[in-house]
Amino acid sequence: MIIVVDPEKKTKIPFSRGILTRSITSTGVDVGIAYSIAAEIVKELERKKVKVITKDEIRKMAYKKLLDHGLKDAARKYLFWHELRRLKYPMIILLGGATGVGKSTLATELAFRLGIRTVIGTDTVREVMRKIISKELLPAIHTSSFLAWRELRNLPKDVDPLIYGFESQVRYVTVGINAVVERSYKEGFNTIIEGIHLVPGYVSLNDRSFMYLITVKNSEALEARFYERARYSLRPAEYYVKNIDNIMHIQEYLIEKAKEYGIPIIENIELEQSINSIMNNLMEEIPKRLKERGIELSI
Rank of each mutant, 00 (worst) to 15 (best):
E151M: 13
L110M: 04
A34I: 04
G121S: 09
E272V: 07
N280L: 07
K217E: 15
R126C: 10
I263M: 06
I92C: 09
T27R: 03
T215Q: 08
L87P: 01
Q251W: 03
R153G: 15
L254P: 09
W81V: 14
S277R: 09
V241F: 02
R126K: 15
S233H: 00
P139F: 05
Y172T: 14
Y232S: 14
K72I: 12
Y164M: 04
F226R: 09
G18N: 15
P264Q: 08
L152W: 14
M248P: 14
Y164W: 11
K257T: 12
F210P: 10
T143E: 02
S23M: 13
Y253N: 09
E109F: 07
V181Y: 02
P90T: 02
N206A: 01
V29N: 01
S204P: 05
R126Y: 07
I214Q: 08
P90Q: 00
A179S: 10
T105K: 12
P156S: 06
L254F: 06
I24L: 11
F189L: 12
T27D: 00
N268H: 11
V101N: 09
S144C: 13
M283L: 01
N218T: 10
E284Q: 10
Q251T: 06
T124M: 14
R229P: 13
T108L: 07
L95G: 15
K242H: 14
K288P: 07
Q169F: 08
S277V: 04
G100M: 10
I163K: 04
G32K: 13
N276P: 05
R229D: 12
S219E: 15
V31W: 11
V31K: 11
S36T: 13
K77M: 01
V31H: 09
K77P: 00
D68N: 13
R22D: 13
M129K: 05
T27I: 03
K157E: 13
P7N: 04
I265E: 11
T174P: 06
D6A: 02
N268G: 11
L138Y: 08
L282M: 14
R17I: 07
F112T: 01
H249N: 06
S134W: 04
V128L: 08
V216H: 06
K291C: 14
K88A: 09
I141V: 07
R17F: 01
W81P: 12
D207F: 00
T215C: 06
K64N: 10
